[in-house]
Design a protein around this nucleic acid. Structure first.
Length: 570
RNA sequence: CGGGGCGUAGCGCAGUUGGCUAGCGCACCUGCUUUGGGAGCAGGGGGUCGGAGGUUCAAAUCCUCUCGCCCCGACCA
């Protein structure tokens, strides 16, 4: 492609709205333009990056034996009502009505639609296993779209769904996808990690997330430096490095005045104790029921764990009114004893064995001291409700865990029978017995990968695309377009590279050299060939964007050299 | 949904104690010069100040409502 004939509009300044690097560079490089919050146009450069990604994903999915389909974006409410997600998915589901007032959803994911397809199509065990996938636009009415392509309301996702005749087959399908994902992200040139994760709204028994490691990642990952354990902090079960110890003697519970002291730090300082001698009592509204979660003062509640423990759909902190009703006190003085109308009291195991704790007093400006679980209150359950943090011990090998940040680009789930049961996706086995399909689902955030790749590969001048994702592998840069010799050589090399099947862009604009260099660095082509003064000596300058390495290549060798570099993946 | 901020030319911004034909930089068009890291000079096109209503002799500027965008939180594959 010739620069003068494509549409590349670069910006010198960052758009005010772009906060993170990938968003800024995608905008400045002319890859995307915003249409509305979380909704973008993909310009020719952006589209080419997406096509590169889609080609990699498609090749690897096909290699794994998956079959590509194309499912509708619009799906009728009835399908969602059948699975129960019309209610459970909540406000994130885009819903529309047609002229006859029939309700539809804009697909955020396609379990219902695919299960419906399979139940209409698959009748025999002979047709299983089957893994169907598509790459399509997805819609989610995000509470807060942000960070450019990172969290959009409309985005491109590859979603795949496997159907097996039994658990053993489903496990195999899952493993195949897990390995396929490793191949895909490796081919994209990304540094990533597979981690254990919470299944969230999709449901199912087990899932792994594929995280691109980057400081700007929205997800926390706990990783073990000693073994292979890695988990999303929502899911991670780090063991306490410092369990609570019982003191010798139980002391009688007393109330003490703590005027105006609400937070753990304030109360601990006021009573001259350490935060870990406190027990925080957090009141939540779980689907309308008020529940209490109790945790040691130096730790935080992990609401995902709490939500799962309660099997709740919606979990939010209780309102001041609910707290007043349950404790009789304003916010900040809740304690675990004598609670009114609280259906469950869950205690984090950080308090296992602890005695003589400081808690809220259930009266304004009062705390209780010498509170002991089992004597002063009885938890409904004792379990891990903690947010894992750095230094907690690896659940597999006991070494202290590190905390990293990542961008979720893929997620593989074992779904089990959740959808096949609700929607009756069944087949007949050899014995003529009806069985339900055992399902798995596998997502890749295709458009998000583009942003993640930039978060991992950029410098002060712009993007450094991995070769596999670059819109063009090579940019040809004649320094002086009016120098006939240089221009002629660039044209020849351009034709030869094109003939060799290389993605090449010829910067034929009548711009000064500086402008061309800046644009090339900004857009991030992995290789640059500069046709300047050395053309007279039949030499072309080759520069690697990622390393900055420069070498002079004889004209006669340049095409072979570029082909070799691309072959080698650079 | 709670808190904070912002909507003035394609982009980045100034102007906002009401007062002249609404301004600057970048980008864009024309010409001349320049030509290996975002050139210089000269000339030029483009906005009615997010929208609606109101106050006033006079509104980008004040008031009311409304729409949109960004950040933090809540929330979220």
């Amino acid at each position: 492609m010739r620069w003068s004939r494509t549409l590349i509009d670069t910006l010198k300044e960052n758009p005010a709205e772009a906060e993170i690097v990938s968003h800024q560079l995608l905008m400045r490089g002319g890859f995307i333009r915003k249409v509305a919050a979380g909704i973008y146009d993909y310009l020719p450069l952006g589209r080419r990056v997406l096509l590169k990604l889609e080609a990699i994903v498609r090749e690897e999915m096909d290699r794994a034996g998956a079959l590509e389909v194309l499912l509708p974006i619009l799906s009728p409410a009835e399908l969602w009502q059948e699975s129960g997600r019309w209610e459970k998915y909540g406000a994130e589901l885009f819903r529309i009505r047609d002229r006859h007032d029939r309700e539809f959803a804009l697909g955020p994911t396609h379990e219902e639609v695919i299960t419906d397809l399979v139940r209409k199509t698959v009748k025999s065990y002979r047709q299983l296993p089957v893994n169907l996938y598509q790459m399509h636009t997805k819609f989610r009415d995000e509470v807060r779209p942000r960070f450019g392509l990172m969290r959009c309301r409309e985005f491109i996702m590859k979603d795949a769904y496997s159907f097996d005749r039994d658990e053993v087959g489903a496990e195999k399908s899952y493993q195949i996808m897990f390995e396929t994902y490793q191949r895909i992200f490796k081919r994209c040139g990304l540094r990533f990690k597979a981690v254990e994760a919470d299944s969230g709204a999709i449901g199912g028994s087990f899932s792994s997330e594929f995280m691109v490691l980057a400081e700007t990642g929205e997800e926390g990952i706990a990783t073990c430096p000693a073994c292979s354990y890695a988990a999303n902090t929502e899911k991670a079960q780090g063991a306490l490095p410092d369990p609570s110890q019982a003191e010798a003697a139980l002391k009688p519970r007393e109330l003490v005045a703590t005027p105006g002291k609400h937070t753990v730090e304030e109360v601990a300082a006021f009573l001259n104790v350490t935060p870990r001698q406190l027990a925080k009592t957090m009141l939540y509204d779980a689907d309308g029921q008020v529940v209490a979660a109790i945790i040691r003062g130096d730790r935080e509640i992990n609401e995902v764990k709490l939500k799962n423990a309660l099997n709740a759909v919606n979990l939010v902190l209780a309102s001041p009114e609910q707290i007043k009703a349950a404790t009789g006190a304003p916010v900040g003085f809740a304690g675990p004893f004598g609670l009114q109308g609280v259906t469950q009291v869950l205690m984090d195991d950080s308090l296992q064995g602890a005695v003589n704790l400081v808690t809220g007093g259930n009266q304004a400006d009062m705390h209780a001291v010498n509170v002991t679980p089992g004597r002063d209150f009885t938890p409904t359950r004792v379990l891990d409700l903690r947010l894992t943090r750095a230094g907690d011990l690896c659940p597999r090998c006991g070494k202290p865990l590190d905390l990293e940040r990542g961008i979720e680009v893929g997620h593989v789930f074992k779904l089990g029978l959740k959808y096949s049961e609700a929607m009756h996706a069944a087949f007949l086995d050899e014995a003529g017995q009806e069985k339900l399909c055992v399902m798995g689902c596998y997502g890749i955030g295709v458009s998000r990968i583009a942003a993640a790749a930039i978060e991992q590969n950029y410098d002060e001048f712009g993007i450094k695309w991995p070769l596999a994702l670059a819109p063009y592998a090579v940019v040809l840069l004649p320094v002086a377009p009016k120098d006939p010799a240089a221009m002629a050589m660039a044209e020849d090399v351009y034709a030869e590279l094109q003939a060799a099947g290389v993605d090449v862009l010829l910067d034929d604009r009548e711009e000064r050299a500086g402008v061309k260099f800046k644009d090339a660095d900004l857009i991030g082509f992995p290789l640059r060939l500069t046709f300047g003064k050395s053309v007279a000596e039949n030499l072309i300058e080759l520069k690697h964007r990622s390393t900055g390495q420069v070498e002079m290549v004889p004209r006669s060798e340049v095409v072979a050299k570029i082909k070799a570099l691309i072959q080698a993946g650079i």
